[in-house]
């Protein structure tokens, strides 16, 4: 799923400062699961903004609502007119974008979209995929070097590895893990195979995916 994080409250306050009536809009798919855009976070943020703005003497009304998914036009159409002059979206970038396209008032992002991640337990996610459009996980034992290695190295660990740790010091070295896992899986041939430079064009060129035409690759 897409992992997101709420923006600092000062940034949010600045964005909505010139508005009078703002709808905080949650997204009950990825953002909710990321504990940043469900009904609870919407209501908490609404209270926080009410409190913060009233202390500043500003009079901005904040209301809240949650859509099942903000990246679907039909869900957005479900929104009723509420006399708002801005949206504060707690959806990922896709939600903010579609909302902006469909609504005729400004939409502000209340969260930052971080990565495509997997859950590692309570309130803890790890980036696992960079949506590069060229998946190599079959050759890297399911550990994405593009995502997990800060340099996106495709051919093995750099000299910065220390005790299996990345030189950035905050994570395991992806390549050490890939090696261990490949050995466990008996995929030794993947260890010696040199990977060609990646094709970054997919990420640049494939910006719309229309499967409605027959014969398209699925």
């Amino acid at each position: 799923m897409i992992v997101v994080r709420q923006k600092p409250i000062d940034d949010i306050l600045e964005m909505v400062a010139r508005h009078k009536r703002v709808l905080i809009l949650g997204c009950n798919t990825c953002s909710a699961v990321a504990l940043a855009g469900g009904e609870k976070e919407v209501e908490t943020l609404a209270e926080l903004l009410r409190l913060a703005t009233s202390r500043k003497g500003a009079s901005i009304e904040f209301e809240g609502a949650v859509l099942q998914r903000q990246c679907e036009p039909e869900f957005i159409e479900e929104l009723e007119e509420g006399g708002f002059d801005a949206f504060l979206s707690l959806g990922c970038g896709a939600g903010v974008a579609l909302l902006s396209e469909k609504e005729d008032i400004p939409v502000y992002p209340g969260i930052d979209t971080l990565f495509i991640g997997a859950s590692k337990g309570l309130a803890n996610w790890q980036a696992e995929c960079s949506a590069c459009g060229e998946c190599v996980l079959g050759e890297t034992a399911g550990i994405c070097p593009v995502t997990r290695c800060p340099k996106g190295i495709m051919n093995g660990p750099c000299g910065g590895v220390s005790d299996g740790q990345c030189e950035l010091g905050d994570r395991d070295c992806a390549w050490v893990q890939i090696h261990e896992r490949l050995e466990e899986l008996g995929q030794d041939e993947c260890i010696t195979e040199t990977h060609e430079p990646r094709d970054h064009s997919t990420k640049t060129l494939v910006r719309e995916w229309d499967m409605s035409e027959p014969g398209e690759r699925k």
């Binding site: 800060p150 340099k151 996106g152 190295i153 495709m154 051919n155 093995g156 750099c158 000299g159 910065g160 030189e167 950035l168 040199t194 990977h195 060609e196 430079p197 990646r198 970054h200």
Partner: peptide, 26 residues
């Protein structure tokens, strides 16, 4: 391959790493 930008003096810079050492040798 080179050290990552975040350990240097311009940590906000984009790190390119379009290629890396093996591919550079190629």
């Amino acid at each position: 391959t080179g050290d990552h930008v975040v350990v240097g003096d311009h940590p906000e810079a984009a790190a390119v790493f379009d290629l890396e050492s093996v591919q550079l040798l190629d």
